[in-house]
């Protein structure tokens, strides 16, 4: 990657982080408000997902047409829906419901040194290392 590309990847991250903050997804109260369907339900997360999924899906359809040796896109083929996927999604769901943080929002709160993020992110790193060490996660390159 050249220097210009490295600036653009930083910009991509900044767009993502700005989106998380603007959409309110960095506030665990708003996320748990969405998950709490029997409480005073907050539909915001659904609108965030609609915007993100729509733009990404449409963008990938367009990008596919311009694929060449300078633009290599990842495979978007589905992996098998196996035990790993289901068990992982269940464990993640429990953690997400408990904390109201998924990985992006937790990292996004590091910049302002939120104590919740300063605790959550190292714990998340330990969980990932355990998954990689004992459950065969992230073995393929």
């Amino acid at each position: 990657m050249k220097a210009g590309r490295f600036f653009l990847i930083f910009l991509a991250g900044a767009l993502f982080g700005t989106g998380l903050a603007v959409s309110g997804m960095t506030d665990p109260g708003r996320v748990i408000g969405f998950l709490d369907i029997f409480g005073s339900w907050d539909p915001a997360l659904l609108f965030v997902m609609a915007g993100a999924v729509g733009v990404y899906g449409l963008g990938m359809l367009i990008l596919r047409r311009f694929q060449n040796q300078n633009l290599k896109l990842p495979s978007t083929a589905s992996s098998p829906i196996d035990r790993q996927l289901i068990i992982g999604a269940v464990i993640f769901g429990v953690g997400w419901g408990l904390g109201g943080f998924c990985p992006g929002p937790a990292l996004a709160n590091l910049g302002t040194l939120r104590i919740e993020a300063l605790l959550f992110v190292p714990a998340m790193a330990i969980g990932m290392l355990l998954a990689q060490r004992f459950f065969g996660a992230d073995q393929e390159r």
């Binding site: 790993q84 953690g95 943080f101 937790a106 998340m124």
Partner: peptide, 12 residues
Amino acid sequence: AGLLVGLGTRIG
């Protein structure tokens, strides 16, 4: 929660 999110996201 952080521990479970780390475990679950990488296993899944």
